[in-house]
Nucleic acid binder design. Structure first.
Length: 552
DNA sequence: GCCGTTTTCGGCCCGACTGTTTTCAGTCG
């Protein structure tokens, strides 16, 4: 059973309690829903934790739920859960995917509608379940900035911010939410009206005095919220979320005797800025990227929030593919080395690495591979680039963990990246062994896009992260945060684990075309969401210190 | 059922919208 399936099961148990007796089971409902959230956000598969006897590490899972999960992992089902969900057909849970349908409504539908009507509704809900793809961050950012330009141009807007997952820089974004402060009082309705006139609007979903929602091409929903200057900070904080951060923040406020909401603190305390709000609650300001209720409030109380990495801390890009043709196994870059170097200087880098894919394994003998690599070495070393260019290579990991490049070939390199581009479906143990074998080559320094996930397309591979982390720490190997918005790999949650353990990471754009060099900021977002400081990221080192790390 | 910077017992976030059991339950974020 996957974490998503377990989370769904726990939510169904909560809904069942709610359906049967909301008052009696009030706190079980809260507990099960919280447990479901925790499972969904867990960085480890629960099944793996259970294998290792570590279920109690998951927050919000206590002895009771743990014992039921134990039963599920052993026998595939839990007596207790079955008892709670008794009398509620599967169809009812499926129907809950429909908007505004909870279990009570779903059960009512099953009792009152005909079979034909039910079948139609089920089709509809299954469609929703299969369609919940979220937008990649850059796509959402582009749309948001166009809409924000429109708002700034034509209405009396004096302050404007994005909200929600967009502002927290999550890898994917659902709806785009925007907050504005009006220049004049009593102009709110005019702003929302102007907003709905945005030229690309396909449909106005809702339009009131303080809020409006429009639908843009590609099923993109944009919500606008207009607020008063006095309450701007509260609104910004509340709608930035995350939901879990807000819950934890309000619980913290409650301990201090305050009831916090998006309007401020009852009865009349209002906040113009987020800083005022956090400070009023005795907290240091918390960057939006950290607001996921993963310890940021406790750290804020203790004045121990990390000084997060910034884009200007990055001294070089450690994954760039040029068009120098070494008959690669995967896509060759399309931009010339000269173009890429020029752009690197514009970006203020001190060094970069050319990391073309290895010459194809099937097309060449190992000797031929070595020859091609020698040609590339000459080309990189004999040119005067005007900034340090490292001669590197992104090497496929064979199924057995060996590399398709001979030791002689590896000798031509300053250091190598390794990555998985085929055979994604090995067992966790086999995959872990495969990666550790490849990481053991002395020239190999960086494990690139370690989970091999592609957002909205492909789940990542299964790895025993504890072993990978341990190996990296002991052998000074680094994990890449691939900044390609389709990858963002390591994912933020694993970055957080790595940071906690002191494992070093690298940032690379995986550039195959010159404009991709500008994707570095998306990698920085991920690093920040994982609580990384510049000490955690190798390419924040000066050229001199970086050279020492790679023994040059 | 879970949890701890006032607690191992006694609490558990806050509010908006919708559509009508027209005073609030159900759902959502």
């Amino acid at each position: 059973m996957t974490n998503l399936q377990i989370a769904e099961l726990l939510r169904n148990v909560a809904s069942s309690y709610q359906y049967k007796n909301e008052q009696k089971y009030k706190f079980q409902i809260i507990a099960y829903n919280r447990a479901a959230d925790a499972v969904e956000h867990s960085t480890s598969e629960l099944k793996d934790l259970w294998d290792d006897g570590k279920l109690d590490q998951v927050p919000s899972i206590g002895p009771s739920i743990a014992s039921h999960l134990d039963e599920i992992f052993k026998n595939g089902k839990s007596k207790h859960f079955e008892e709670v969900m008794k009398g509620i057909p599967d169809e009812a849970f499926r129907l809950m995917a429909l908007p505004k349908v909870g279990l009570k409504t779903a059960m009512k539908m099953l009792q009152e509608l005909s079979k034909k009507e039910i079948d139609e509704k089920l089709k509809e809900s299954d469609k929703i379940i299969n369609k919940t793809k979220r937008h990649l961050l850059p796509y959402a950012e582009n749309i948001a900035s166009e809409v924000m330009e429109w708002l700034k141009e034509g209405s009396n807007v004096i302050k404007i911010d994005t909200l929600g997952s967009l502002r927290r820089k999550v890898a994917t974004v659902g709806d785009i939410d925007i907050l504005v402060k009006s220049k004049f009082k009593n102009q709110n309705a005019k702003i929302t009206e102007y907003f709905t006139k945005y030229p690309k609007t396909q449909k106005v979903i809702e339009q009131g005095e303080h809020t409006a929602s429009i639908l843009l091409p590609g099923d993109v929903q944009v919500d606008l919220l207009v607020t008063t200057p006095e309450q701007y900070g509260s609104a910004l904080q509340h709608f930035t979320g995350s939901k879990h951060h807000n819950i934890a923040l309000r619980e913290h406020a409650l301990k201090l005797g305050y009831s916090l909401s998006e309007y401020g603190i009852k009865p009349d305390k209002k906040f113009k800025t987020e800083e005022e709000l956090y400070n009023f609650l005795g907290l240091d300001y918390i960057e939006p990227e950290l607001r996921e209720d993963t310890g940021e409030i406790q750290a804020s109380i203790a004045n121990s929030l990390p000084l997060l990495i910034k884009q200007e801390d990055i001294k070089g890009d450690l994954q760039i593919h040029s068009d120098f043709d070494i008959e690669t196994s995967h896509d060759l870059g399309v931009s010339t080395a000269e173009e890429l170097v020029k752009r690197s200087k514009e970006l203020g880098y001190e060094y970069i690495a050319f990391t073309e894919h290895n010459p194809s394994k099937s097309g060449h003998s190992l000797e031929r591979v070595t020859d091609l690599l020698k040609q590339k070495e000459e080309y990189v070393r004999e040119n005067d680039w005007g900034l340090k260019v490292f001669n590197s290579l992104e090497i496929d990991i064979n199924k057995d963990g060996s590399l398709p490049v001979s030791l002689k070939g590896l000798e031509t390199l300053d250091f190598a990246l390794i990555s998985i581009h085929s055979v994604f479906d090995l067992s966790r143990d086999e995959m872990t062994k495969r990666v550790l074998t490849a990481l053991s080559y002395p020239k190999v320094k960086i494990f690139a896009h370690p989970t091999a996930r592609k957002i909205n397309e492909r789940e990542g591979i299964e790895l025993d992260w504890e072993k990978i982390f341990d190996f990296c720490l002991k052998n000074n190997k680094w994990l890449e945060i691939n900044a390609d918005p389709m990858r963002l790999d390591l994912p933020d949650t694993l970055v957080r684990d790595a940071v906690k353990l002191g494992i070093k990471m690298t940032l690379g754009t995986d550039t195959h075309e010159i404009t991709m060099m500008d994707n570095m900021k998306y990698g920085v977002n991920v690093a920040r969401r994982g609580w990384a400081t510049k000490k955690d990221v190798i390419n924040c080192l000066s050229l001199e210190d970086f050279k020492k790390e790679v023994n040059i």
